[in-house]
């Protein structure tokens, strides 16, 4: 089967930092991949390269048959790739409903009635239909993140990227976000998740990947990676987070 995300020898330099040192990774359609690793390991950078929020210096990334090496393709790719951020990044000047509707109207060119219908369905899906007219500042962190997921889903993406989606949340709100993500995984969404939520990884992920120092150190199904890691660095990292 042709991978829906093909990453080949990708390298990325920030000023003074070699963030990615030649990462290769293929992700299949419907696969859920969790990436873990210490801070500064390059996991978020890799994720952000998949929709070209970061430009890489070398190698190539092909998403759903479209090469990201050509800058002219980026909006086409981004429409198909949803992204959820650690800090939610909801638009504070728009209501929940308008947050979810904006890109549907502007990018997908849906008419108002259709966009509203999609929005209402998604708000039911993420469990907060009653918040349609609230503003982001009036929501809890967990609710904001669920709106952010709905906003990304409204574009009918083929792939969802999650960049530490629960790291900024109070502990009691983490589960409500993970539940939404679990539902998505069950529906067969292709997901790449940077997160240390081992419970989620065990429950939903097909593969877990440990990154360190800009390289993929080890990859395996989560149960195996977490219980019988083969690499010393994986063991050292897991002993700190588990």
């Amino acid at each position: 089967m042709e991978p829906i995300i093909h990453i080949e020898n990708v390298e990325k330099h920030f000023t003074g930092v070699h963030a990615l040192k030649g990462v290769s990774l293929d992700i299949l359609k419907g696969e859920v991949v969790v990436i873990i690793g210490p801070s500064g390991s390059g996991k978020s950078t890799l994720l952000r390269c998949i929709n070209r929020l970061e430009e890489y210096d070398k190698g190539q990334i092909v998403v759903d048959g479209i090469s990201l090496n050509n800058a002219a393709n980026i909006n086409a790719v981004r429409t198909e790739v949803g992204m959820v951020f650690q800090s939610f990044n909801l638009f504070p000047h728009l209501s929940v409903k308008d947050n979810i509707m904006l890109a549907q109207r502007v990018v997908r060119k849906r008419d108002r009635a259709e966009a509203e219908k999609v929005t209402q369905e998604l708000l039911i899906k993420v469990g907060i239909p009653e918040k349609a007219n609230a503003f982001p500042s009036q929501l809890s962190g967990g609710q904001q993140q669920r709106v952010a997921i709905a906003r990304a889903l409204a574009m009918n993406p083929k792939i969802m990227l999650f960049d530490e989606p629960t790291s900024a949340l109070d502990p009691e709100m983490i589960q409500e976000v993970l539940d939404v993500m679990l539902d998505l995984a069950r529906e067969g969404m292709t997901m790449v998740v940077v997160s240390h939520e081992m419970g989620f990884a065990r429950a939903a992920a097909h593969r877990a990947i440990l990154m360190d120092g800009g390289l993929i150190v080890e990859e395996a199904p989560p149960d195996i990676l977490f219980s019988k890691p083969t690499q010393e660095r994986t063991r050292a990292f897991l002993s700190k987070v588990l």
Partner: peptide, 17 residues
């Protein structure tokens, strides 16, 4: 915040939008 532009761009909106 930089994240606002990133969120907008990640939804497929171009720079002007």
């Amino acid at each position: 915040a930089k994240g606002q532009m990133e969120a907008a761009r990640s939804l497929g909106m171009n720079y002007v939008q």
